[in-house]
Design a protein around this nucleic acid. Structure first.
Length: 299
DNA sequence: ATTTTCCCCTGCCGGC
DNA sequence: TGCCGGCAGGGGAAAA
């Protein structure tokens, strides 16, 4: 499912292809995609508009328009954005829900098998957009995201740290994949109460979040499900996941068998050795292992 | 206020 | 081979 790294990958690819183009036509094939806005109202806001910029906020892709309005896109579970130099032929785009046609004949297809994905029009005005994005927390790759800030935002919270990481009000853009990966990299058990980490652990987790997201962006995102990038290609991050979807496999760090449990209704993968149990009080400071077991990549 | 549960939606997978 | 139940999960509303 598209999380921050996947959306950022798409943004990077689409920006040079879309910015400066004029929208010639909008076709809504599934009215659910604009819900609750009426499809014709949605189309009207886009028709004839020049695309002025492409940004990302959390898992949202934000398409700036010359009118000052913003087209916001969320891919949710199975949504895809697929750019083509020419309009896709009949049956060429699976699960096509909406199509945006540019003045040069290039197209942006919105496909979505499960129909959870949505598009919105944010009215003109910086305040409007600010307000619209107001429910989103800090961008984890921005300078505003600090270990101290993370600790403060989780102070007193008793929900599982994994659930907190998935909460977009706390941090914007982390989903199930990178929550698991960051907790593993930071050596934090997913069920630890969010407010119970030591300063050292908040620092480790903060660092792990940035590291995993950065690596994932460099890898073009994880195509473990239906994710494809803006050009229809797979990413490579699925080969670099260390615990997510690795139930039964040896931990790449210590060799212990990776387990899967459910945390906050979400499948959760972790290493019982590297991410010590929440009920067992703080363990003594961990010594660095001289050697790490390398994960077999590719295969 | 915070936390938990439910729901949306449908392709895909394992089991028989 | 084919049918079918159940799983997957982001996010928001509703309930606890």
């Amino acid at each position: 499912m598209p999380e921050l790294p996947e959306v950022e990958t798409i943004r990077t690819q689409l920006a040079p292809r879309l910015v400066g183009r004029r929208i010639a036509g909008v076709e809504i094939l599934d009215p659910l995609v604009t819900d609750p806005m009426a499809p014709d109202e949605f189309s009207h806001a886009l028709a004839g508009q020049c695309i002025t910029g492409l940004e990302r906020r959390g898992k949202y892709l934000l398409v700036g328009l010359e009118s000052g309005a913003t087209l916001a896109v969320h891919l949710r579970m199975t949504g895809r954005l697929h750019w083509r130099a020419r309009r896709p032929g009949p049956g060429e785009e699976r699960f096509l829900r909406a199509l945006l046609v540019c003045d040069d004949g290039s197209t942006l297809a919105f496909g979505d098998a499960r129909r959870f994905g949505r598009v919105w029009i944010i009215p003109a005005g910086p305040m409007q957009r600010e307000y619209w994005c107001g429910r989103l927390g800090v961008e984890p790759l921005s300078a505003a995201f600090t270990a101290r800030g993370l600790a403060e935002s989780l102070h007193g919270r008793r929900v599982a740290i994994k659930t907190a990481l998935l909460n977009q009000v706390v941090i914007a853009g982390i989903g199930n994949i990178y929550a698991d990966e960051a907790l593993f990299a930071g050596r934090v058990h997913p069920l630890r109460p969010a407010g119970s980490l030591s300063p050292h652990e908040y620092r480790a987790l903060h660092r792990a979040i940035r590291d995993r997201l950065t690596v994932a962006i460099a890898a073009g995102g994880a195509s473990i499900d239906s994710y494809r990038d803006g050009l229809g290609q797979r990413g490579e991050m699925q080969h670099l996941l260390r615990v997510h979807l690795h139930e039964g496999d040896p931990c790449p760090r210590c060799g212990t068998t990776i387990v899967k449990t459910v945390v906050g209704q979400r499948g959760t993968y972790w290493c019982p050795q590297c991410q010590p149990d929440p009920t067992g009080a703080h363990l003594p400071a961990m010594r660095r292992r001289p050697r790490r077991v390398r994960q077999a990549v590719g295969a």
